[in-house]
Write a protein that binds this DNA or RNA. Structure first.
Lengths: 342, 342
DNA sequence: GCGCGCCATGTTAGCGGTAACAGGGGCGGA
DNA sequence: TCCGCCCCTGTTACCGCTAACATGGCGCGC
């Protein structure tokens, strides 16, 4: 293909309109499939646009029409595996709505979140999907101050700004504790990340402790790590915990990846899982499906959460008026092979 | 915080200018830190903006200034682990340049890629970073037709449009073949994905076969899978391959994740890795660091590629004129514990 | 005391589209 | 034959911000 337009000036509607002999308005109508245009004109315009290699300028279009087909999606991390899953579901759900997700990553930093949010709002998106309920005051203010739909996802333990779609991590931890106790384990340890800003992991641990307390049990020991490969950390921390506390009969991990590391450690050291020691993680990562033993876990409903959040934004941006819904999903406990059956 | 502005009309520069008693231009200058403004005025404006909860409209700003601080990053997938890594490096590198990455995902579909590219170009970004060298004709045309920097990443085996940063997957496969043969393996199988659009995996396999051929060896057997959890697929396919062809002494996997599945299978079935059978993958995923045996692999330089691509875009958008560079990284073979040492 | 220059601020004219309304021509019904 | 309506196309006035230039006031040197 040649490059027909080589003047310094970038292509505009006017170029297409001159090339096809109609007004800019008509070209605009053709390119957006809006309003009545005769077939002959339409074809002529399309041909001219294609020949020139014209790409519409959405910046100008958005300014004029006060409409932006973008949805801001703000998440803590992409290397976590849980967020890409949410994201792809959002993306799929938005596919036919004319809306498009734009991702911002905060690295679990509230300040970064505020900054990313500011940046995104300045593009006037049609909606915001943001992970978690904890934000800086300024971020909350921005979200309250805007009149586009806001959906906070993943977590329902707390007060939302507008709509909320997620699970109760507190209760997820609590239920896991109950299941573990029901299976007869009593010396229970915990391994998780040190990140103070991972509120969902924190809530799970709190709920977990609460569940133990209800049965009159306290957490026997805990290890917190930060950085590094989760799998390797799971292995290391498990070793450290078991060396320090050889009579542990269960370890609860803050996510499946560390849990898998722990599982590998136990197998390598001939520990009988789940009889000698039980293990459980969190998330239901299908990534781990190939392991010899399936780790006990709890599905975080990541896919469903993404879809629902996208639906809410899509409906609202089409004029739907429902506002401030809170939708709680029910995570399902999967015992797998690492909790002994009663 | 209250919500002081509750008229139906959204906030504009004018609101801030009226609230602070200066012209819109001065407000604009303050908010962008550009031009001389007295400290007193600056403070007054900032206070007014903050009180109102004003968020600038980048759409209007971009239109007026013909400047957009966005870099389009177009990749095939987020669930692959390799792209999030590239992405976070791009993000880090762009951090202090005022540029911001915007991600588009193509799901390995050329048509989707074309569509995503069109959408992104219509926002007039300052640069494009796009995975791979294979695009539809229309996509190539769009990229040729634009005068913003374009960097194609991951792969250097082919002709680039503008700049190219990557590795030669063909040579990566070839070198792996050489290393495997040098270690004395002779009955060599392959397991990979069925995706015809994953050109890089294809090129690795081609190079691999070429390497084998140089030593007078042909691929003994191969399996191709699609969909599902890579780990589980690795396990299944390995079983299938070994059942069909029990005298295989090596399996080369198209990526680390399937390779890890294969490794798990071998360990579970008491196969002596690397003596009885050797294994190798591709990518250097640190995700797998916690395995008992480290899988032989080849680092794809994902981090470095991301950084370099971002650098090129950043420099070019600052006026740098270098154009059409091709930067080839050298992937490093890591023997790990699954290829026997000579 | 006057003019020069400079700092701080204001004015004007778009950026490239689109909403809303304005025509013009052909065709059917009266 | 003439009117009215509908289909198609054009005109006008912004959308919210910024580049570029204009301006006003004040300090300073001679």
């Amino acid at each position: 293909m040649t490059r027909p337009h080589d003047l310094r000036r970038p292509l505009t509607l006017r170029d297409v309109s001159e090339a096809s002999g109609v007004s800019e308005m008509t070209v605009s109508r053709v390119l957006r499939n809006r309003g009545d245009v005769s077939d002959a004109t339409r074809e002529r315009v399309l041909k001219a646009a294609k020949t020139l290699g014209y790409v519409p300028n959405k910046i100008a279009g958005a300014l004029a029409s006060q409409r932006v087909n973008l949805v801001a999606v703000i998440i803590p991390s992409l290397s976590n595996l849980v967020f890409p899953k949410v994201l792809s579901n959002i993306s799929d759900e938005l596919e036919d709505t004319g809306l498009q997700p734009v991702v911002g990553v905060t690295n679990y930093s509230p300040e970064k979140e505020e900054q990313v949010l500011y940046e995104m709002l300045s593009w006037r998106p049609s909606g915001v999907i943001i992970a978690g309920l904890e934000h800086t005051d300024a971020a909350r203010a921005m979200l309250l101050n805007t009149d586009i739909p806001v959906v906070e996802i993943m977590d329902v333990d707390g007060e939302g700004i507008d709509s909320v779609v997620g699970i109760s991590h507190r209760r997820a931890g609590l239920h896991m504790a109950e299941a573990i106790i029901a299976a007869g384990y009593r010396q229970i340890g915990f391994i998780g990340t040190k990140m103070p800003e991972d509120h969902r992991a924190r809530k799970r641990l709190e709920g977990f402790k609460e569940g133990l307390a209800k049965a009159g049990i306290a957490l026997a020991d805990a290890e917190f790590y930060s950085g590094g490969s989760a799998l390797a950390k799971g292995r290391e921390m498990t070793e450290a915990l078991l060396k320090r506390n050889p009579n542990l009969d269960f370890i609860y991990y803050s996510n499946d990846m560390v849990g898998a590391g722990g599982l590998l450690y136990c197998r390598d050291h001939g520990l009988d899982v789940p009889n000698q020691i039980g293990l459980a993680g969190f998330n239901g990562l299908d990534l781990l499906d190939g392991f010899s033993q399936r780790l006990a876990t709890m599905d975080a409903c990541r896919g469903k959460i993404g879809r629902k959040a996208a639906q809410i934004v899509a409906e609202r941006s089409q004029g739907g008026q429902a506002t401030g819904e809170v939708i709680e999903m029910e995570p399902v406990l999967q015992l797998g092979d690492t909790i002994r059956k009663p």
